[in-house]
């Protein structure tokens, strides 16, 4: 078995986000990029499968600031090969990425491709279904469990309200991972450092990128909201007093303890 995991970096939402002076894209000057949380789960799911069956895990990521560390971390977790796609990704969308990555995946011929169910900067759909269509393979997203059997994968697909559909999908296939069966493991920085000395990132340049498939954005802006919470300030003591009076107003302090 061979599994390819596609991983990308996304803006860290903890940082302040600003719009580029041009007004149609994010300002990337100070943008801090981190691994897409769901791609991290996809890596974890691949490693879990590797631990159960003899599986080769290849992690591919486009070159964004910080990608080397992400790839070496995947390697320290157990990935067998790490590939960095190089090129100009300053204004790339998922359609372009999917087409470019599909061309690489066709060469690798994996049985299974895993990627995160979505990313916070997706604007033309998530990459998984686009990738699957480029490869002419079936796709199941919102996946939170995978078992491999010969030429099929048995997957758990999440529906709202905690309902799960168990499905079988004939390989080769692409899955969009919502959550790995276990939270992504932690690897010590020292172990990542060690891997940096002993492993290599395989760099592969991407040819022309084709961004078609997305309607043009004419304006990007920070969400302006019509309402905002009434902010309670002061010492913890003062805040607690105010909250207790809110509870009283709402009539919820009369209740007996359960």
């Amino acid at each position: 078995m061979k599994i390819v995991v596609f991983v990308k970096l996304v803006p860290d939402l903890v940082e302040e986000l600003t719009v580029d002076p041009g007004g149609t894209t994010l300002d990337t000057t100070w943008l801090r990029m981190i691994i897409n949380e769901f791609d991290d789960h996809a890596v974890e799911q691949a490693i879990l499968l590797k631990e159960k069956t003899s599986t080769q895990v290849i992690v591919i990521a486009p070159d964004f600031d910080g990608v080397d560390e992400v790839l070496f971390t995947a390697c320290a977790k157990g990935a067998d090969q790490i590939i960095k796609l190089t090129g100009d990704f300053s204004s790339i969308n998922n359609h372009a990425l999917a087409r470019a990555v599909a061309s690489r995946i066709k060469i690798l011929q994996p049985d299974l491709v895993l990627t995160g169910v979505q990313a916070n900067n997706d604007i033309d759909g998530s990459i998984g279904p686009a990738l699957a269509a480029c490869l002419n393979q079936p796709f199941v997203g919102y996946v939170s469990g995978v078992t491999l059997e010969d030429n099929t994968a048995i997957v758990q697909k999440e529906y709202p309200g905690g309902v799960i559909a168990e499905m079988s999908i004939t390989l080769p296939a692409v899955l969009g991972i919502q959550a790995a069966e276990q939270p992504p493991r932690y690897v010590a920085v020292s172990k990542v450092r060690q891997v940096m000395k002993t492993s290599n990132i395989d760099e592969q340049p991407l040819d022309e990128l084709d961004n078609s498939g997305f309607p043009e954005v004419t304006r990007m802006f920070q969400s302006e909201t019509s309402a905002h919470a009434e902010m309670i300030t002061g010492s913890p003591d003062e805040i607690a007093d105010r909250l207790v009076s809110v509870f009283k107003e709402k009539g919820i302090l009369q209740r007996t303890n359960r």
């Binding site: 004419t218 304006r219 920070q222």
Partner: peptide, 11 residues
Amino acid sequence: ICGGKIMAEGN
């Protein structure tokens, strides 16, 4: 996008 922090408008 971006967890609801940014809006993108287009034709």
